[in-house]
Design a protein around this nucleic acid. Sequence first.
DNA 1: ATTGACGGTATACACATGTATACACAACGA
DNA 2: TCGTTGTGTATACATGTGTATACCGTCAAT
Lengths: 210, 210
Amino acid sequence: MNVLTGGKLKLVQAGLRLITETRSLTSLGLRELAREAGLNPNTFYRHFKNLDEFGLQVLGYIAEDMKSGVRELRRMAASSEQASHDTVTFVYRYFQSNPAATTVAVRELHGPSPLLRRALEAQLNASAREMAEDIIDRQLVSAVPPETIHEISRMTIRYILIRAMDYIEKPEQRESIQLETERFINRQFRGAMLDNLSQTEVESLAQSRV
Amino acid sequence: MNVLTGGKLKLVQAGLRLITETRSLTSLGLRELAREAGLNPNTFYRHFKNLDEFGLQVLGYIAEDMKSGVRELRRMAASSEQASHDTVTFVYRYFQSNPAATTVAVRELHGPSPLLRRALEAQLNASAREMAEDIIDRQLVSAVPPETIHEISRMTIRYILIRAMDYIEKPEQRESIQLETERFINRQFRGAMLDNLSQTEVESLAQSRV
DNA sequence: ATTGACGGTATACACATGTATACACAACGA
DNA sequence: TCGTTGTGTATACATGTGTATACCGTCAAT
């Protein structure tokens, strides 16, 4: 059973609560977690062998959240050139409503624990693959080869995750973060359409439109 | 005087030594640092008021390193469409030869301390500004408006810093990281040249070249 | 009805941590 | 020459930490 209940759930949720703002997963203490969860320190051992295992469980706990959030990304792809404004807004709103999970993900993706880094990386790559295959299936950018779509998807997932952190922390910049994200994605795909053109060819194209 | 000497320098260098691999700046302890530096724990107080101040000093210490490294980025920009392979290689080699500074930067940019995050962000933005103004001055991508060049520069600096971490940690992927970085940059700028075209116009352009 | 697992608790130990106070000594300007 | 300033040290204290051992109720299965 992968579903968390009782004390185990309490501990994981306590971890998420503690992390927001000024903490990181790897900095949490066993006693600290138990205290926040309202449990005896030793109860921790009933559920986790050590803090590393706890960290992995937390990642697992937020994994579905993240997945469902990233799944919304596909909508954005579906309309990247038209209604992308609304869909990017939607994705960021999702992250905004899950600040703890977002913070954990961003922080541990570049954090000190190689174990957690690898785990998160695998999750992000899986999401990126899903996003890419969806774009390919729907033939949204048929002028771009599949491998390139995968590459851009990986970059986009990471970019959005990182900007989501800014989005949460800097309410006054939310609109511009949104717009920058849209431009980022459009430029990647549009640029990729010209991958096999030479520099001079691209320049002449650009100038012919001025 | 901003130059570090004696015990203060020892402590900062001890911090950099400890951080590599599995630590973060904010996780370092006062006694731990003194131990690594071969000093008495209390000597720490002679140089720093608290650990936050220590963190800022470390950032200051690596700031010139980072700056000079990022300054090399301009070379890449100068030849982004031609010899970019060699220049990106050069930049990553630079990060590779400063693994501690790179690790600190990546880790604290998304780390738990808002103070350090803001400080690093300011440094990166300054570097991005420098890079952008250089590109503008040399008229390397004259088809792209200045504000867009600034925006892409900010994205690029962050992208390269994060990939530099991968570059250091995954020797077998170095070549592909390099190539992906080149494509990232080219696509951003090429895509930006088409910013004011509609989706259908871009598609017809792409198809006309197949 | 007994057993055993499960989740939770209490107490205790050895150790590390940040910090305060006080001491030592070299360099140097008055 | 004396006092001050800068740098380093020793000792000590309260607190927090991970962990070990042992105890206790609940509940399900035998």
